[in-house]
Write a protein that binds this DNA or RNA. Structure first.
Lengths: 155, 155
DNA sequence: TATTGTTATACTCTATAACTATA
DNA sequence: TATAGTTATAGAGTATAACAATA
């Protein structure tokens, strides 16, 4: 095993740090009684009000049948509302309730704290430098802004 | 949803890219019939020959009972050898077979390709810059070099 | 006939704890 | 009595496909 990180490449460090960042974020949102997928779902619905469960499934890479249970839960907690579309009565349009919007605000606060804590060893310039490099890689690989691919199956 | 990546912080980008990098790496090693945890296990055993299953479990954050099945598989494929310690006949000392070492070499090749592909949009200077920033964050958070925390449970 | 959301089911995965052999 | 490895098992989680309503 390597004695320090100096011989380890950027891609491996990224996997390692990415997992770590995800775990820390999960800890934070668990204080709100949420899991990261639920958080992502709320963010997605907040950003695209009225989207269907199919569209949500597509966007998050989850099976539609799995969406059902998630939305059930969020609806039961008064965070999300299902309403039948008037155009196509098969689809359920999803929106955040007022309570859901409010919670979304708190999630944003947590995310900012998370961001600050995680990048603590870097100064402002360096953070922007890092974010810039990462953005270029993300765009190069065609990753959708704001959605990460971790909600599907991954071994 | 954000239109581009410009308003997204480094920590989120890191989670997103880390997951993506992990998925791509998983695709690569699957060509060798391996999963990423198996790869990590081979690397760990190769780096610390003679370590016990307990030590391996500790290092990877896996339950000892889980290690058994993994080692069974790797042993059946002739990649890893269990030998009873002469000092303490309870422990199984793990080592790579010649075949395991050879496979480890191919894994290293794949890792290098993965690294190159993943960082493709960056030039050599920028890669070193990126790796340097990531290393500082990794050290600040006390991550063990070369081991990533993704083998335990994570939702 | 195709699609949306839902439910049911079979399958896999995981965690836990019991068990053995050594110490 | 305690520890290394193993096995068994119950519970959770997942994927798949069947289903009802609507198009």
């Amino acid at each position: 095993m390597p004695e320090d990180h100096s011989e380890i490449g950027a891609a491996f460090l990224l996997t390692q740090l990415g997992t770590h960042a995800a775990t820390r974020f999960a800890e934070r949102v668990s204080a709100l009684g949420l899991t990261p997928p639920q958080t992502g779902m709320l963010r997605m619905i907040g950003g695209t009000p009225g989207l269907s469960q199919q569209a949500l499934a597509q966007a998050l890479g989850m099976a539609p049948s799995k969406i059902v249970a998630f939305v059930d839960e969020l609806e039961a907690r008064g965070l999300v509302r299902r309403s039948r579309s008037v155009r196509d009565r098969r689809v359920h349009e999803l929106t955040l309730t007022d309570q859901g919007q409010e919670l979304m605000g708190r999630i944003r606060e947590l995310a900012a704290e998370h961001e600050a804590d995680f990048c603590q060893p870097l100064d402002a310039d360096e953070r922007e430098q890092l974010a810039g490099l990462l953005r270029r890689i993300a765009e190069h690989h065609g990753l959708a802004p704001g959605v990460h691919p971790g909600y599907r199956s991954l071994r």
